[in-house]
Structures are given as structure tokens and as C-alpha cells.
């Protein structure tokens, strides 16, 4: 059970909601954490997800959801403080450290995470993973970007188009 500290709920204990992944795993999490998702927030405000019901998430598998919730639980207290204007430098540094480690993951997990963050509309997480991918393509040629992100090899037609553009913008490849 969660510690009765948030005052979010009638009996002093934090209100819990249940999320159900695509492979039918149930996750019980504080409503405040799950509410980082804009998609879930309305349902939760309407009183959904409690008791035995649970909110089904048919697009998110359990491995990804577990990762998403790890992020939400870590960021929920700061979000509850309205973006934590009163957070100490130590708190902020800790969140930053967490974020850096959080995205230091296998690419397949990262891509599932991008899609989940997008579907669940978790702004901070969307931003974090997008930034990570933007960093991953730094200094790479279009072909290297394709390989990094697991695109199939270009068709001869696509290849010719790429070559033509690369000739035109030679400065970008020096």
C-alpha cells in the first residue's frame, strides 16, 4: 500500500488505480502518478480505474508499461507541486540523473517507450525520449540514421533521391 502522505483520497491514503497492459498484467499505481498521462487523467478524474475495474491499455505491453510507470512514479511528486517550482537543486539534479539513466536503454525498449509516451500523452516522457533520439542521430549521415533507427535499406529509387539531395547540400557532409 502507498504511504498515506498525499492526502489525495477520502481516508488519507493515496488513491490507487489499476492499469491493465495488452498482455493482461495488472499494475496498481497511485492515481497521481498515472495522471501524468493526459489520456488517463480524465478517466481517473471520473473515478475510473479503481476497485476491481482497472483501465485496459491494449496498445502497451507489460514490459513497456512497467517502464512508463517507473517514470511516472519518480516524476509524480514534482508534477504535483506544479512543476516543482520550490524543488531544491538537489531534487532537480536527482530527477535529471534519473532521466539520463532512464533513457540509457536498449533501442527496442526506447521505441516502445516513444510510442507509449505518445499514446498516453505523458509530456515529460515524450520530451525525454524524443530528445534522446535526436541526440542519437547527431553526426550521422542519412544512411547511418536509417541503420541506427532500424529502417529497411532504401530502394534504388530512394537511394538515387538521397544521393541527389546530398550532392546539392554538400556542405552538410564535409
Amino acid at each position: 500500500m502507498a504511504a498515506p502522505e498525499s492526502g489525495d483520497g477520502n481516508n488519507g491514503a493515496a488513491r490507487m488505480v489499476t492499469l491493465i497492459s495488452s498482455d493482461n498484467t495488472r499494475f496498481e499505481v497511485e492515481a497521481a502518478a498515472a495522471s501524468l498521462s493526459q489520456t488517463l487523467q480524465l478517466t481517473i478524474l471520473d473515478g475510473g480505474g479503481g476497485g476491481g475495474d482497472g483501465i485496459p491499455l491494449p496498445n502497451v505491453d507489460s514490459a513497456t508499461l512497467s517502464k512508463v510507470l517507473e517514470y511516472c512514479i519518480k516524476h509524480a511528486p514534482a508534477a504535483a507541486n506544479g512543476g516543482a517550482p520550490n524543488a531544491t537543486a538537489v531534487d532537480r539534479a536527482e530527477l535529471e540523473r534519473f532521466d539520463n539513466e532512464f533513457v540509457n536503454i536498449d533501442q527496442s525498449v526506447l521505441y516502445s517507450l516513444i510510442m507509449a509516451a505518445h499514446n498516453l500523452e505523458i509530456e515529460g516522457l515524450q520530451s525525454l525520449v524524443a530528445k534522446k533520439v535526436a541526440d542519437m542521430i547527431k553526426g550521422k549521415s542519412p544512411m547511418e540514421i536509417r541503420r541506427t533507427l532500424g529502417f529497411p535499406d532504401p530502394t534504388p529509387e530512394e537511394q538515387a533521391e538521397m544521393n541527389a539531395h546530398m550532392l546539392e547540400y554538400g556542405w552538410a557532409y564535409e
Binding site: A134, I137, K140, P142, I145, F151, E161, M162, A172
Partner: peptide, 23 residues
């Protein structure tokens, strides 16, 4: 879009190369 909009403006080549990745 979310990814590419985060390419830093002081690295113009990064966005240009990204634009050549595919149609």
C-alpha cells in the same frame, strides 16, 4: 516531428541529414 523539432539549431546539418533519411 517531436524528435526532429529537438535537433539543436546550432547543428543545422543534423536536421538537413535527417530530412534526407526518407520521403
Amino acid at each position: 516531428d517531436e524528435i526532429l523539432v529537438r535537433c539543436p539549431p546550432d547543428d543545422p546539418a543534423r536536421l538537413l541529414r535527417a530530412a534526407l533519411v526518407c520521403r
